[in-house]
Design a binder for these strands. Structure first.
Length: 573
DNA sequence: TGACGGACTTGTGTGGACTTGG
DNA sequence: CCAAGTCCACACAAGTCCGTCA
């Protein structure tokens, strides 16, 4: 409750005016990032072996070896690409002498190091309560000093104030760069962004910043270029900040605006299915998929630099199968491709006849590896969308369709007569419909079967308990009827309550089991965090008197404080 | 128009904190 | 009170989209 109060106390940025012309802030002061702790060398008794013999390593080579040693029980270290990239990068860190000897990873023995680090982890886990408390306090102190900034007179929380420590790059799926060494970032790599009239952060002693700039048109406080992909990384504010919140609010407003244009847009792209211009037809069909299936835009990617994943515009012929008829349905398109994060998208969808014919046409004369939409790119698509509605891009359709689906599903599934637990089940089901639409999948948790079985056992036990309680109630009633006494009446009442309580518990368990089962392979958190207009959820909670904390955890309530504050029961998306 | 980099959002996995039930 | 299970915050990877430059 205390936190809720704190939240109420928080500055209501949404009641203030925004800056114009791309200005993000006028005053920004912070302490700079926190760097990764320096490498802690191995004790002399822990050895690395090459070709069966102990082989002492230079400090630099040892540090990189430790990255691999710590991961020995991870699947990554069995993959060829990972191993090859690692040994190549590792050898770059070696001295000439080391490089002369160490050439084959298969001859490297890291097991002593692995065991050593395992032991340290174990020790860490078994720390005493006092130690844990002390660490927590130290962390808190660091957070208070480096975890906040002053932006235009307000103290704002920073999202990530720690620089990423060095290690091995863990790309997802078949990433060609997995296993490469992520180098240690030094102050000399860091660009600091703050206002000129602020207290400029001091670099650690003996070091200098790469650059200090004062750019109020961007939101980041510090940045550096990472060595594996050469991309820029940033220190930015927490999701509950004004800067992030305003942007998020704006996103949902753009999505809401689409509601007024969607009818016309859909009509237009259906007309364009018959366009004489191939480019227009392809654009229309792609847009149809983006709208109907909530596919991502699908930017072009540099070949060989990333895993082979696609979105709508980058679909290739091998990702599509056409079924004139399938399971009693006509014009079925079968999608099978790897999307963002190498998550598989598999779906069989009956489509408009015109779409089906078009896709067939687009595929004619093409072979594996060819683009389905060879005349289309995301910039082209977005340029077109911009003309249809200001601020419209491909990803707005995902936000729009996710939010409108939640709203419709809540309307459909919520039964006013239900109790709170069942209403929450309805909410989760509505949320689930969105997650399915957006293909937010997850691997079933490793403990899933076990914990499912546990719930079933509990349910059975409850049922038995109810039987017993009912029997006792019956007997108590019978006794009370025979001998009319106050004491017996009380007993009957007690037994009645016991039955009721047990039945309520049973119902709660059954709802829990259903929810869990339906959620086995589906992740709700992503859509909740990124796609669902929080005002829909807040309004629903207020309308049905469901505590917001049943739907949103503290982080979400904090992030969506603006929505919590401004939304009433009558909000419609 | 096409490559490219920069800025920002979206996404999953994970370790540790927190909760719960025996 | 402890172990097991669950949940959350965080780390950081991987997208989208825009502006610039040739």
């Amino acid at each position: 409750m205390k936190e809720e109060e704190e939240q109420q106390q928080r500055w209501r940025w949404w009641e203030e005016e925004k800056y114009k012309d791309g200005i993000k802030w006028k005053y920004l002061e912070h302490k700079g990032p926190v760097f990764a702790p320096p490498y802690d060398p191995l004790p002399p008794n822990v050895k690395f072996y090459y070709d069966g013999k102990p082989f002492p390593l230079s400090l630099q080579a040892e540090e990189v070896a430790s990255f691999f040693a710590k991961m020995l029980d991870h699947e990554y270290t069995t993959k060829d690409i990972f191993r090859n990239n690692f040994i190549t990068d590792w050898r770059k860190e070696m001295t000439l002498e080391e490089r002369m000897v160490i050439s084959e990873l298969a001859k490297c023995d890291f097991t002593e190091m692995f065991t050593y680090y395992k032991g340290i982890m174990e020790e860490r886990k078994n720390r005493t309560k006092e130690d844990k408390l002390k660490l927590k306090e130290e962390n808190e102190k660091l957070m208070q000093e480096f975890g906040f900034c002053i932006m235009d007179h307000h103290r704002e929380k920073i999202g990530n104030f720690r620089i990423e420590p060095p290690g091995l790059f863990r790309g997802r799926g078949d990433h060609p760069k997995q296993g490469m060494v992520k180098k240690r970032i030094l102050p000399e790599d860091i660009i600091i962004n703050c206002s000129q009239d602020s207290k400029i952060p001091k670099p650690p002693t003996g070091h200098k910043w790469k650059e200090v700039r004062h750019d109020g048109s961007v939101s980041w406080l510090a940045s550096w270029t990472e060595n594996v992909k050469g991309s820029v990384k940033y220190i930015m504010l927490n999701a509950n900040s004004k800067l992030k919140g305003e942007k998020d609010w704006e996103k949902y407003e753009v999505a809401r605006k689409l509601k007024f244009h969607i009818h016309h847009i859909r009509k237009t792209y259906c007309e364009n299915f018959k366009s004489k211009e191939m480019k227009v037809r392809q654009r229309a069909v792609a847009l149809y998929f983006i709208d109907k299936l909530a596919l991502r835009a699908g930017n072009e990617k540099e070949e060989g630099e990333t895993a082979d994943t696609v979105g709508c515009c980058s679909l290739r012929v091998e990702h599509i199968k056409l079924h004139p008829e399938l399971d009693g349905e006509k014009h079925v398109v079968e999608f099978d491709f790897l999307g963002k994060d190498c998550i598989r998208y598999y779906n069989k969808v009956p489509v408009e006849k015109q779409v089906f014919k078009n896709v067939k046409l687009f595929m004619e004369g093409k072979q594996e590896g060819d683009d389905l939409f060879d005349r289309l790119s995301t910039p082209l698509l977005n340029k077109h969308l911009q003309l249809l509605m200001e601020g419209l891009t491909a990803k707005v359709f995902r936000t729009y369709n996710a939010s409108i689906t939640l709203q419709d599903q809540l309307q459909e599934l919520t039964d006013p007569n239900d109790g709170v637990p069942t209403k929450i089940l309805s909410y989760n089901r509505a949320n689930r419909a969105v997650a399915v639409l957006c293909n937010h999948q997850r691997a079933p948790p490793k403990t899933f079967d076990q914990s499912m079985a546990n719930i079933k056992t509990k349910i059975d036990a409850r049922k038995e308990q109810i039987e017993l309680a009912k029997k006792e109630l019956k007997e108590a009633k019978k006794e009370a009827k025979e001998k009319d006494s106050e004491k017996l009446k009380k007993v009957v009442e007690m037994k009645r309550r016991a039955v009721q309580r047990a039945e309520e518990q049973l119902m709660r368990l059954e709802v829990q089991a259903t929810d869990k089962e339906e959620n086995k392979q589906i992740a709700l958190s992503t859509s909740k965090l990124n796609y669902l207009d929080p005002r829909i959820s807040v309004a629903w909670c207020k309308k049905w008197d469901v505590g917001l904390e049943k739907i949103y955890n503290k982080t979400l309530r904090d992030k969506f404080a603006w929505a919590v504050h401004m939304t009433d029961t009558d909000f419609t998306f």
